[in-house]
C-alpha cells in the first residue's frame, strides 16, 4: 500500500495502517533519539512519545511536505525539549563531568583495543552532549542521520545558509571539545 494511502487511513483512525507507518519509520526515529541521548531506554521511550504525538497530530498533516520530513520535525522538537529539560537537571553534574575526560584518557591507555571503541563512543557522546541543543540536533541530522541540507532546512525551519553556518559552528565546537583525545597517539583510529 502507498504511504499516502496509509496516512489517509491512519487519519481516519485505522491503527493497522498507522502500525505499518510506525514499523517503517521506527528505526530512523529511534536512531535520532539514540544519537542524542546515547541511552537505549530513553531513546525507546522518546520514540514512542514521538509516534504518539504524530498520531494525534495526523489530522493536521496536509501532505505539503514529505511525511518523513514532518515526522523528523516532530522528533527534533520533542528531543530538543527533552535535551533542554535534561541540561537544566544536569547542570551541576556537568561541572563534575569536566574531570571525566582525563579519567577516560587514562583508562583508554590501559584498556584493550576492543574496549577502546566503547570509550571513544563515550567521549564523543560526552562532547556532543556538552553542546547546546540546537547544535546537537543539527549534528545528528547531518552527520549521523545523513540528511541533506535541504531536508534539514525544512525540518528545522531554517534557511540553507543558516544550516551551513550552524553546522560549521557545531563541528568546530565538537572538534575543540575532542581536541585532547584527537591529538593522542591513535586517538581517532
Amino acid at each position: 500500500m502507498e504511504e499516502e494511502e496509509l496516512i489517509r487511513l491512519s487519519k481516519e483512525g485505522n491503527e493497522e495502517a498507522f502500525g505499518t507507518i510506525v514499523n517503517k519509520y521506527k528505526t530512523k526515529v529511534f536512531n535520532m533519539a539514540f544519537s542524542l541521548t546515547y541511552n537505549r531506554e530513553v531513546a525507546d521511550d522518546l520514540s514512542q512519545e514521538i509516534f504518539i504525538k504524530a498520531y494525534f497530530a495526523l489530522p493536521k498533516f496536509n501532505f505539503k511536505s514529505a511525511f518523513g520530513t514532518w515526522l523528523y520535525k516532530i522528533s527534533s522538537n520533542h528531543i530538543k525539549d527533552y535535551l533542554r529539560k535534561e541540561s537544566r537537571i544536569k547542570k551541576i553534574s556537568l561541572r563534575e563531568a569536566t574531570i571525566t575526560p582525563q579519567i577516560m584518557k587514562d583508562e583508554i591507555e590501559k584498556k584493550q583495543r576492543e574496549q577502546l571503541e566503547k570509550q571513544k563512543n563515550v567521549l564523543v557522546h560526552q562532547a556532543i552532549q556538552k553542546l547546546p541543543a540546537k547544535y546537537q540536533i543539527i549534528l545528528s541530522l547531518r552527520d549521523i542521520q545523513g540528511l541533506s541540507y535541504w531536508e534539514i532546512a525544512k525540518i528545522l525551519k531554517l534557511s540553507p545558509g543558516t544550516v551551513d553556518s550552524r553546522l560549521y559552528r557545531a563541528r568546530r565546537m565538537l572538534r575543540n571539545k575532542l581536541m585532547p583525545f584527537l591529538k593522542q597517539k591513535g586517538g581517532g583510529q
Binding site: G19, K26, T27, F30, F34, S47, V124, R171, R175, L182
Partner: peptide, 26 residues
C-alpha cells in the same frame, strides 16, 4: 581531525529499538 570525527559519527553502530515496539505503542 574533522575527517576522523565525521567518519566516527557516520560509522556509529546503533542498537535496535526494544522488542514489540508497535505493540507497546498501541
Amino acid at each position: 581531525d574533522y575527517k576522523k570525527i565525521l567518519d566516527f559519527l557516520k560509522e556509529q553502530d546503533f542498537p535496535k529499538p526494544k522488542p514489540y515496539f508497535w505493540e507497546r505503542l498501541k
